[in-house]
Computed example of a mutant assay.
Amino acid sequence: MPIAPLPRASRRGLAQEAADLIREAIFTGHFPPGSPLREVELAASLGVSRGSVREGLAFLEREGLVRSAWHRGTTVIDVTEQDVEEVYAVRAALDRLAATSAQGNATADQLTELDTLVQAMAEETGGEASGTRLLALDIAFHDLIYAASDNGRLGAAWHAIRSQIYLFQLRRIALGYEHYRARVVDEHHELARLLRSGDRETLARRAEEHVDSARRSLLTGLHP
């Protein structure tokens, strides 16, 4: 019996493009935490329909990057103490599992790429260091660890909070850049080294401590 053909996959839509552009605008500080996101203005600026903007904002709401409320519209999430505690608690658990899983599954090429990212961080801090460029390398490092864990559901869990982490880390850098700059290379170098070792317990502990250091730094900046 012949199998009925499946529907053709649709091309990348305007809603996804709108989401990507709005996300990038949030990450570059065009829309700081707490800012309103107005459909009419966004549609005019992006040259797309309000429907595409509305769908794009729905994508970002699923990422936890924006919030919508009846009669109050859509806003970029605020960086509150409760939000920080919740998101970094989840990240600590995920990072621990990702690191210990990657320890046994990472390929030689992936381990080399982690070293390359750490070297790029070191070069960045040695010159006219940019917090946004350092953060991009930082997130790329963790993206690679999740990929090396070879656990698709774990990777999906990471991507569910990744945008929130990115925004919170941007806020951390804005409030305490020197603290971030002073620690970013050494902490990631140690994680890369431990991934090559057989010391699972130390790796797990350091992965959690790395997240806790970020959490404490951000909270100190929020409440100096």
Score class of each variant (00 low, 15 high):
R171N: 07
P33R: 02
D83N: 11
A160G: 06
R162Y: 12
V87M: 09
S217G: 14
S52P: 12
T112K: 09
R133E: 08
R133L: 04
L60T: 07
A182Q: 01
A89W: 02
V118W: 10
T125G: 12
R181L: 14
A147Q: 02
A102V: 06
E190Q: 14
V211T: 14
E85F: 07
L134D: 13
E61T: 01
V87L: 04
S130Y: 05
H210A: 14
L218Y: 03
L21H: 00
R23F: 08
E209V: 08
E86F: 12
R96L: 14
L97W: 11
L218W: 12
A108K: 11
G104Y: 00
T75K: 08
L111G: 00
L46P: 03
F59C: 00
P2K: 14
W70H: 14
E24G: 05
G47T: 06
L6Y: 07
Y177K: 08
A25E: 10
E17L: 15
E55P: 04
M1S: 13
A207K: 06
V184P: 09
R193P: 04
H223Y: 14
I26M: 04
G127R: 01
T80Q: 09
I173N: 00
H30N: 13
R96H: 14
R196A: 09
A92F: 06
G176P: 12
E85M: 12
D212E: 15
V211Q: 00
H71C: 09
D109P: 13
T132L: 11
V66M: 07
R96I: 05
R62T: 00
T80F: 05
I165T: 14
P36D: 01
L111A: 10
E128V: 12
A122W: 02
R67I: 13
M1G: 15
A98F: 03
D109H: 03
D143W: 03
A129H: 05
R216C: 06
R62M: 07
S149T: 10
G152P: 00
H223E: 02
L170C: 10
H189Y: 10
V90D: 05
Y146C: 00
E39F: 05
A102F: 05
D143M: 01
F59A: 06
E209C: 07
L65H: 04
A92E: 09
R153A: 03
L191H: 00
A129I: 13
Q103D: 04
H30D: 08
T112P: 02
Y166R: 15
A156F: 06
R215F: 00
L97D: 02
D138Q: 10
G126F: 00
L65D: 08
D109E: 15
Q164E: 03
R38G: 07
D212W: 08
A174F: 11
D78F: 02
E17M: 14
Q16C: 07
A182K: 03
I165Q: 13
L134M: 12
H142M: 03
G176L: 01
I145W: 07
E124L: 01
